[in-house]
Design a protein around this nucleic acid. Sequence first.
RNA 1: GGAGAGGUGGGUGAGUGGCUGAAACCAACAGUUUGCUAAACUGUCGUAGGGGGUAACCCUUACCGGGGGUUCGAAUCCCCCCCUCUCCGCCA
Length: 424
Amino acid sequence: MLLVPNLRENRENILAGLAKRNKDFGQQIDEIIRLDEVRRKTQNDLDNNLAEANKLSKEIGDLFKSGKKDEAEAAKPRVAALKESAKELEQTLQQTEETQKQLLYTIPNVPNTIVPSGKTADDNVEVFIWGNKPQLAEQKKPHWELIEEYDLIDFELGTKITGAGFPVYKGAGAKLQRALINFFLDEATKAGYREFQPPLMVNEASGFGTGQLPDKEGQMYHVGVDDLYLIPTAEVPLTNLYRDVILKEEQLPVKMTGYTPCFRREAGSWGAHVRGLNRLHQFDKVEIVQLVHPDNSYKILDEMVDHVKGILQKLELHFRVIRLCGGDMGFTSALTYDFEAWSGAQERWLEVSSTSNFETFQANRLKCRFKNSEGKTQLVHTLNGSALALPRIVASLLENNQTPDGIRIPAALVPYTGFDMIKK
RNA sequence: GGAGAGGUGGGUGAGUGGCUGAAACCAACAGUUUGCUAAACUGUCGUAGGGGGUAACCCUUACCGGGGGUUCGAAUCCCCCCCUCUCCGCCA
């Protein structure tokens, strides 16, 4: 959520930045600014009103004490009248704030200056590429064939017990999942992230805190009876650990990591290109999250990007990093780098990580702040990244490392799997 | 799920309906003392909104789990909800 004083003072710059998302928010922003004037004026009137009522009430108390009952009684209606008008002002104030908030929820974060403008994924910019396409035999197989051949993952079983998009991992397939999770967590821990195991369901307030609600309501599974949401990413519970918290400056940066399953309804996004592991309703992911001082959040974003690069290199995967254009970037992000691993048999890039700086957009909703060196409270910057999401990593690993003798496991992973080859 | 007790500032914990935004203690921060540390002493020490001032800061409003109500006046009384603890039940 953008900051209202900021909208007031930097209207032009903000509009120019938002233009990169190919939408014009001029009307909404002007209305927010107008509502803010109403809000401040009303607040002022209400304050004066209440101050007067408080003063009179005190006087009435004093009059009672000194035995001047008649005078006290005579003053009561005046307070009552003040209270009456205060009630109206309070209503106006609440309505104004509510309307303003609803409008604010419709405005996405302002893209950073280096975000390319553009509408679709075609306008994203490749900023880094590593490795080479694997040389595979003519009869190479896509991962959905390999997992059947080696009996690693069973989609039909998942469909039977739950539904489409809920795979069952079996044998070496299950072991590979566990190996990857442990590998990713160890890498994150080595990089100074503290490991957490958060709840997999969150309440409404948490959904609002990180920006999944209200705009992405339909993307989360909702447990109606208890009014809880299944997390779409560990970002939600981890970042919300610091909702309504005021940190000390020296506590920054807060570095958290966590493995969780992630649940996504992916409503309406099924079709071509989503076979096998390419898109699931439940998948595993290790997330890294940081709460940082605003002065160095972009330096830290680079560090996080380097961290993810390092993991992909250890996995020996051919990958590239792209900077998302305004049209392709998430609602809450100010700058996002996507990581795409090469899928040797599908012969296309698969998104395996998204690493973003949200600046104060989430922090403002979360009310996550720190006391700066001047003793003033200030919003932190929040960042997060997948490090990494499993399914497409598994898809790439299986496809790129297929050999006539089996599927080769990258050296860095062998200590975790306990085998260096998946065989029939 | 049933019964009971309770939710006050970073913590512990007071608080007859007006003098309580809130005692006291601890923690924290700053200073004095000190060779250093400790101790002692002094001071500061919630959050948010509005108004004023270049600024230090000043004025004001709201907040004692959340929401409503009673009253001239509510942390204090009433209602609803949430949460925590204890006992019972159930249970990995």
